[in-house]
Design a protein around this nucleic acid. Structure first.
Lengths: 210, 210
DNA sequence: GGGGTGTCAGACCGACTGTTCTAGAATCAG
DNA sequence: CTGATTCTAGAACAGTCGGTCTGACACCCC
């Protein structure tokens, strides 16, 4: 077992200018590499090649390959979560908030599709030392906002009453359809899905006012 | 070097008794190994260990590791598809047929959860020599039955009209939620999902008579 | 000039992989 | 029993990977 969680401890506390730039560059290169070659062929050498850097320099900035990939995940999903949260804040009422949530989610996937595709590829393929995948650790934090919207909607009668974790999971599954599409084809057109998804969800949840 | 491309050509045309038994045993061992270790740690040696056999014997019965894993996929998804198709045949009318489809799908995932989880793990993680994943080649054949049900339902007014590929994808995403659950926890309880999924889908599709 | 420090390349190591090879054991036909 | 075929184990091979090590630039403050 690692003494720390395997994440922290880059060279210094404060970041050099070059270090900040290199780290960003390497995150971008990692995304590009994963998209081109898939997770299990995205070696340090290949990532380094795309950043025009030796693989030893990659390890110089990120203590391990895992640290780099986790940084990609954090960057991509952090941006997605932040954008969705901001969109939801601007309206009130469960139905409207759910609509905003879904719209923002799908719009983000559409816009940042390559980054999202790479991040999901990592989340699905990467295993911890114990062999567990990463998309298992989600439940609590990542779906908290969505759960709270659905709970509020069921409480005030906007949505049909059903087990909260079932509803949350189904909504997530519908939204994640967009990710499947961009993974299959990086140039896929999400317009039709974006047009149908929100009404589809509101009907499925039994929303009264739509 | 092999004379052919390394894919086909098991030892004989007709199967020995031992060969048939071994192949089945190895398929089971591969499922168990993938479930325990995940795809990328499911080496030939590990699969052989679970079948109490040397890894060279594994290759003796399957020309390559890839051939074994593809056999797993074919076995599992073949059984799933067959069961779903049989269930749908017994009723008429788009809404009833969709209900049967979904029920049979979820029931099969519930019952054969370990095999399904392993097969999906393989489909998601395995890459061809060109680096493409396997869950890309689905669209046409695997969703044909579902598409035909949805099309019939839209034509006769049972379902709302919407782009067919969007509706098909969303229904699939909802059903695949069951797979995500059993992948996260092999002992997950699918009862709540199975109870809600069909009404959820019928409402989402705008079915009139539910 | 000299001594640090940050930055990077290239050689290198050990571990692991899928696959091939060799040869011996088990089984069965005659 | 003999001989051929089927089956299996283990060593060996070739390749890739993540990560470490050594050393050398470039730049700084003194």
């Amino acid at each position: 077992m690692r003494s720390d969680a395997g994440a922290a401890q880059e060279p210094r506390g404060a970041r050099t200018f070059i270090e900040t730039a290199r780290r960003q560059q390497l995150v971008d290169a990692a995304i590009a590499t994963v998209n081109e070659l898939g997770y299990h062929r995205a070696s340090l050498a290949e990532i380094g090649k795309r950043a025009r850097i030796a693989k030893s320099a990659v390890v110089y900035y990120f203590s391990s390959k895992e640290a780099l990939l986790l940084e990609v995940l954090q960057t991509v999903f952090g941006a997605l979560g932040g954008e969705v949260a901001a969109a939801v804040e601007r309206v009130e009422g469960p139905a409207a908030r759910l609509g905003r949530y879904a719209d923002a989610y799908l719009a983000h996937v559409d816009t940042r599709r390559r980054a999202v595709a790479a991040a999901v590829e990592i989340a699905v393929s990467h295993r911890t030392a114990e062999g567990r995948p990463l998309y298992l650790l989600d439940d609590e934090a990542d779906t908290a906002l969505l759960r709270s919207i659905l709970r509020a909607g069921m409480d005030d009668g906007t949505f049909r009453s059903m087990p909260l974790e079932v509803a949350t999971g189904l909504v997530e599954s519908v939204l994640d359809r967009s990710i499947t599409l961009v993974q299959r084809d990086p140039d896929a057109d999400l317009a039709a899905l974006r047009a149908e998804a929100v009404p589809f969800l509101l009907r499925a949840l039994g929303a009264q006012d739509v």
